[in-house]
């Protein structure tokens, strides 16, 4: 089978985010990038499927700070090829990213009836996981988001998928190949790779670089202004030493009749 996994670097929201002086974007000096967490699950799922059913895994991403580490990490986990799409990809959002990925797939003739295209089901800057649906629409392929289980039936050349709805209710779907999948959770959590193995891969493997001109990309919506949520401070903050804080917590539990 042919597994193509699209990855994306996103701002690490554990860090402080600062709005730029124009009030319309994040101040990039303050952003530390990391691999989108769901994309890590997509890589893991692709590798698990490859181990079960055979095939080749290709990890593809738009160039971004810290990307090489993420791609070498994917190679160390078991991806067969890593591809970086070179360019200045500032302020491209899901509709445009999907266009670029679709161009990459079409230009390189990468889709056949053994192809599964995977990506994370959501990202911190794409909470509803639009990317896979834009990609499906552009490629005229079925797209499925919030997927937590994938099984392949080689006789039927089809995949059986489990999607989450709400309240713990899930649904089973079935699709022929090729198809686009937004992976929420992989069958097992992403495997840990020792740093030594990643260093070894950095010496032995190379990241392929391709160029896709950013022409005719859809313009996103225009942000009028960005702002931080009002911290009207709904929470009453408990200050003091650890002991003082604990006394206050116990007081609250007691007032609420918990203890």
């Amino acid at each position: 089978m042919n597994f193509i996994v699209f990855l994306k670097m996103v701002p690490d929201v554990i860090e402080e985010l600062k709005i730029a002086d124009d009030g319309k974007q994040l101040d990039s000096d303050w952003i530390r990038m990391k691999l989108n967490e769901c994309d890590e699950n997509a890589v893991e799922e692709a590798i698990i499927l490859k181990e079960k059913f055979g095939g080749k895994v290709t990890a593809v991403a738009l160039d971004a700070p810290e990307l090489d580490d993420a791609l070498f990490n994917a190679l160390a986990k078991g991806a067969d090829k890593a591809v970086k799409i070179i360019g200045e990809w500032k302020d491209v959002h899901s509709p445009a990213i999907a266009e670029i990925f679709a161009k990459y797939l079409r230009d390189n003739n990468l889709i056949d009836n053994q192809t599964l295209i995977l990506s994370g089901s959501q990202a911190i800057d794409d909470i509803e996981g639009e990317l896979v649906y834009y990609l499906g629409e552009l490629l005229n392929l079925p797209a499925f988001g919030v997927i937590t289980h994938v099984d392949y039936d080689s006789g039927q050349n089809s995949v059986s998928l489990v999607k989450e709805f709400a309240g713990g209710l899930r649904g089973e779907f079935s699709s022929g190949l090729p198809a686009v999948l937004g992976i929420q959770a992989s069958e097992n959590p992403p495997r840990y790779i020792p740093i030594a193995k990643i260093r070894a891969i950095m010496k032995s493997a190379a990241i392929e670089e391709v160029v896709i001109p950013p022409d005719g990309l859809p313009a996103g919506t225009t942000i009028e202004k960005m702002f931080e949520p009002e911290t009207t401070g709904k929470a009453e903050m408990l200050d003091g030493s650890t002991d003082e804080i604990i006394e206050k917590l116990i007081g609250i539990f007691s007032d609420k009749g918990i203890i």
């Binding site: 903050m237 650890t242 002991d243 604990i246 116990i250």
Partner: peptide, 20 residues
């Protein structure tokens, strides 16, 4: 979370919870 919580503690849960 502090925008929806009624009470908040800015601190290390690994330290606070065992003592609590």
């Amino acid at each position: 979370i502090f925008n929806v919580a009624h009470y908040g503690v800015c601190g290390d849960l690994l330290e606070i919870v065992p003592s609590l």
